[in-house]
Simulated scan of single mutants.
Amino acid sequence: MKKFLLLIREDLVRLSGMSEEEMQQDIAEMNSWVEELIKFDSFIAGEPLENESRIVGKQVDTDGLLMDAKEGISGYLIIQAETLQQAAAIAAQCPQIIQDKISIEVRPIMDTQQEP
Protein backbone atom coordinates (compact mmCIF):
# COMPACT_ATOMS: atom_id res chain seq x y z
CA MET A 1 0.00 0.00 0.00
CA LYS A 2 1.12 3.52 -0.75
CA LYS A 3 0.44 6.61 1.38
CA PHE A 4 -1.48 9.61 0.04
CA LEU A 5 -1.98 13.12 1.38
CA LEU A 6 -5.49 14.52 1.00
CA LEU A 7 -5.40 18.32 1.20
CA ILE A 8 -8.85 19.63 2.04
CA ARG A 9 -9.53 22.97 0.35
CA GLU A 10 -12.45 25.19 1.34
CA ASP A 11 -13.90 28.57 0.53
CA LEU A 12 -12.49 30.85 3.23
CA VAL A 13 -15.40 33.27 2.94
CA ARG A 14 -17.88 30.42 3.51
CA LEU A 15 -15.86 29.21 6.50
CA SER A 16 -15.69 32.63 8.13
CA GLY A 17 -19.47 33.05 7.76
CA MET A 18 -20.43 29.70 9.26
CA SER A 19 -22.27 29.53 12.56
CA GLU A 20 -20.90 27.33 15.34
CA GLU A 21 -23.75 24.89 14.66
CA GLU A 22 -22.88 24.67 10.95
CA MET A 23 -19.20 24.18 11.81
CA GLN A 24 -20.04 21.37 14.24
CA GLN A 25 -22.25 19.70 11.61
CA ASP A 26 -19.42 19.76 9.06
CA ILE A 27 -17.00 18.37 11.65
CA ALA A 28 -19.45 15.58 12.55
CA GLU A 29 -19.82 14.65 8.85
CA MET A 30 -16.06 14.49 8.40
CA ASN A 31 -15.62 12.46 11.60
CA SER A 32 -18.22 9.93 10.39
CA TRP A 33 -16.40 9.61 7.07
CA VAL A 34 -13.06 9.13 8.84
CA GLU A 35 -14.64 6.39 10.97
CA GLU A 36 -15.57 4.61 7.73
CA LEU A 37 -12.00 4.98 6.46
CA ILE A 38 -10.75 3.47 9.73
CA LYS A 39 -13.08 0.46 9.31
CA PHE A 40 -11.52 -0.25 5.90
CA ASP A 41 -7.93 0.30 7.15
CA SER A 42 -7.48 3.29 4.83
CA PHE A 43 -6.99 6.04 7.42
CA ILE A 44 -3.52 6.81 8.79
CA ALA A 45 -3.77 10.34 10.23
CA GLY A 46 -5.44 13.71 9.81
CA GLU A 47 -6.30 17.00 11.48
CA PRO A 48 -8.33 20.12 10.78
CA LEU A 49 -6.33 23.34 10.39
CA GLU A 50 -7.09 26.83 11.60
CA ASN A 51 -7.53 29.56 8.97
CA GLU A 52 -4.58 31.72 10.01
CA SER A 53 -1.24 31.09 8.25
CA ARG A 54 2.11 32.62 7.33
CA ILE A 55 4.23 32.05 4.24
CA VAL A 56 7.92 31.58 5.05
CA GLY A 57 10.66 31.55 2.42
CA LYS A 58 10.62 32.19 -1.30
CA GLN A 59 7.15 32.59 -2.73
CA VAL A 60 6.22 30.59 -5.78
CA ASP A 61 4.61 32.38 -8.72
CA THR A 62 0.82 32.19 -8.64
CA ASP A 63 -1.98 33.10 -11.00
CA GLY A 64 -2.96 35.95 -8.71
CA LEU A 65 -2.21 37.53 -5.38
CA LEU A 66 -1.80 34.78 -2.83
CA MET A 67 -3.09 36.93 0.01
CA ASP A 68 -6.34 37.50 -1.92
CA ALA A 69 -7.02 33.77 -2.16
CA LYS A 70 -10.62 32.84 -1.51
CA GLU A 71 -9.74 29.19 -1.02
CA GLY A 72 -7.51 27.76 1.68
CA ILE A 73 -6.35 24.43 3.06
CA SER A 74 -8.58 23.67 6.04
CA GLY A 75 -7.25 20.24 6.91
CA TYR A 76 -5.51 17.13 5.75
CA LEU A 77 -5.78 13.37 5.89
CA ILE A 78 -3.18 10.73 5.22
CA ILE A 79 -4.63 7.54 3.82
CA GLN A 80 -3.30 4.39 2.25
CA ALA A 81 -4.41 2.99 -1.07
CA GLU A 82 -3.00 0.87 -3.88
CA THR A 83 -2.96 3.62 -6.54
CA LEU A 84 -3.56 7.34 -7.02
CA GLN A 85 -6.82 6.44 -8.76
CA GLN A 86 -7.98 4.41 -5.76
CA ALA A 87 -6.99 7.23 -3.37
CA ALA A 88 -8.95 9.72 -5.51
CA ALA A 89 -11.95 7.38 -5.49
CA ILE A 90 -11.77 7.24 -1.69
CA ALA A 91 -11.61 11.06 -1.53
CA ALA A 92 -14.61 11.31 -3.86
CA GLN A 93 -16.71 9.50 -1.22
CA CYS A 94 -16.25 12.32 1.30
CA PRO A 95 -19.72 13.67 2.15
CA GLN A 96 -18.55 17.26 1.80
CA ILE A 97 -17.24 16.49 -1.70
CA ILE A 98 -20.61 15.00 -2.57
CA GLN A 99 -22.32 18.16 -1.21
CA ASP A 100 -19.89 20.34 -3.24
CA LYS A 101 -18.65 22.14 -0.09
CA ILE A 102 -14.93 21.37 -0.52
CA SER A 103 -12.33 20.08 -2.92
CA ILE A 104 -9.62 17.59 -2.08
CA GLU A 105 -6.19 17.49 -3.69
CA VAL A 106 -4.82 13.94 -3.60
CA ARG A 107 -1.03 13.68 -3.59
CA PRO A 108 1.13 10.54 -3.37
CA ILE A 109 3.62 10.67 -0.50
CA MET A 110 7.11 9.92 -1.77
CA ASP A 111 8.64 6.79 -0.30
CA THR A 112 12.09 7.82 0.87
CA GLN A 113 12.95 4.50 2.51
CA GLN A 114 15.77 2.79 0.67
CA GLU A 115 15.67 -0.96 0.43
CA PRO A 116 18.77 -2.80 1.74
Rank of each mutant, 00 (worst) to 15 (best):
E82V: 12
L5G: 07
V106D: 06
S42Y: 09
E82C: 00
A81W: 04
G17E: 14
I90Y: 10
S16N: 08
S103G: 09
I38M: 10
S74Y: 03
S42R: 12
M67Y: 04
L7C: 09
I73F: 08
N51L: 05
I55F: 07
P95F: 01
T62F: 02
E29I: 01
K58E: 09
P116F: 11
D26H: 13
D61G: 07
P108E: 15
L84H: 04
L65F: 02
Q96E: 12
D11I: 00
Q86H: 14
V34T: 14
G75I: 01
L12A: 10
I27E: 11
G46A: 08
K101A: 10
D61R: 01
N31M: 11
P116V: 15
I44V: 15
S32I: 13
L7V: 13
Q96A: 03
A28W: 06
I109D: 10
M18F: 12
R54H: 06
G72A: 05
T83M: 00
V56T: 03
M23V: 09
D100S: 10
N51W: 03
I78W: 00
M110H: 13
L66N: 14
E22I: 00
P95C: 00
D11V: 02
G17S: 11
Q25S: 08
L5H: 06
I102K: 04
E52D: 11
E21R: 11
G57L: 11
K2F: 04
R107D: 10
G72K: 03
I98N: 10
Q86E: 15
L84P: 06
A88K: 14
A45Y: 13
Q96V: 08
G75V: 07
I44G: 01
E10Y: 02
D68C: 06
N31T: 06
K2I: 01
G75D: 02
P108I: 04
D11S: 09
I102M: 07
Q24A: 13
D111W: 00
P108T: 08
P95S: 01
L15I: 13
D111L: 03
E29L: 14
I97H: 05
M110L: 05
R14F: 04
E105H: 07
S74R: 07
L37P: 00
P108S: 07
M67H: 06
I90G: 05
M67T: 07
Q96D: 13
I78R: 00
I55K: 12
E52L: 15
E20L: 08
E115A: 11
I79F: 06
R107F: 03
W33Q: 04
I78F: 01
G72E: 03
I79H: 03
M67P: 00
A88I: 10
R54L: 06
